[in-house]
């Protein structure tokens, strides 16, 4: 199931090798092997409880793993390393949460500018200027001085994407970015993600938005019970899923 193992190590943004994780007796991830190439958009889908969110959270080590390795640009994310090295590594992996997790005590522009200032040591004026550009890019420049509590869910998630982009990560991870949104706000967030993909950003995205998967993904990983049981291009996956579990999943979605 290790698709695109043919890509050379240089082109790999992320490689997962036999990743296993369990909570006590319960195995969440049962040996994940997969690769994300540079510039690739991977959509991870599967039934709830299959380990999708856990998987994506192991990539920037918000979750620890029990065995296996995860390489980000050749660097073993779960190796023994100093806190400083781990922080530096994390700062280069953008992460967008289901529940946005904006900092409610900071305005939108400060949410975006704060980490470049405090983590990377960017000059405040420069960071703010760049933050405004990023807010402009997600269509929220006029909301720069609003606080998260004054923004809609869709707007908050767009600020969260801008916040992640402010660290200039080569890779973006999305953990169900639209699942907490009202239906009418899903589109605005997906549009931002689409434009990111069009610019060649490497993306790993857990989502239930099959329309997005169909239009934007280069590959789909179908995950069930802690294993990737099918990887395919969207075309193959939606037209002709091979695995019975994937067939059932798609059939359920159509109802």
């Amino acid at each position: 199931m290790t698709a695109s193992t043919s890509t050379s190590a240089k082109d790999q943004a992320i490689r997962l090798a036999d990743v296993r994780k369990s909570y006590g007796d319960y195995d969440v991830l049962k040996g994940i092997d997969a690769t994300v190439a540079r510039g690739e958009v991977v959509v991870i889908c599967g039934p709830s409880g299959s380990g999708k969110s856990t998987l994506i959270r192991t990539v920037n080590r918000l979750e620890e793993i029990n065995s296996g390795s995860i390489f980000f640009e050749g660097q073993d994310v779960h190796a023994q390393m100093s806190g400083r090295d781990l922080n530096r590594l994390r700062s280069r992996i953008g992460f967008v949460f289901q529940s946005f997790n904006l900092f409610p005590h900071l305005s939108a522009v400060d949410n975006v500018a704060m980490s470049p200032i405090r983590v990377k040591g960017v000059a405040p004026a420069e960071a703010h200027e760049k933050a405004l550009k990023l807010l402009d890019r997600v269509g929220l420049r006029e909301k720069a001085n609003s606080y998260p509590g004054q923004l809609s869910g869709g707007q908050q998630q767009r600020v969260a994407i801008a916040r992640a982009l402010a660290m200039e990560p080569p890779v973006m991870l999305f953990d169900e970015p639209t699942s907490a949104l009202d239906p009418e706000m899903v589109g605005e967030v997906l549009n931002v993600m689409k434009s990111l993909a069009a610019e060649g950003m490497t993306m790993m995205c857990v989502t239930h938005e099959m329309g997005f998967a169909r239009d934007v993904a280069d590959r789909i990983w179908f995950i069930d019970a802690g294993q990737i049981i099918e990887t395919a291009t969207p075309e193959e996956f939606f037209k002709n899923p091979r695995h019975p579990r994937a067939q059932r999943f798609l059939a359920d979605l159509r109802h």
Binding site: N60, L62, G83, R84, N87, R88, R90, S91, R92, I93, F95, F97, S99, N101, L102, F103, M114, S115, R118, V119, K120, R163, A164, M167
Partner: peptide
């Protein structure tokens, strides 16, 4: 946990996350 997760994901150290978030 979400606020701490968000700060750590951006590269803040534990104490930096505490201090600023």
């Amino acid at each position: 946990q979400g606020q701490m997760d968000a700060a750590r994901a951006l590269g803040h150290s534990y104490f930096s996350a505490m201090r600023y978030v």
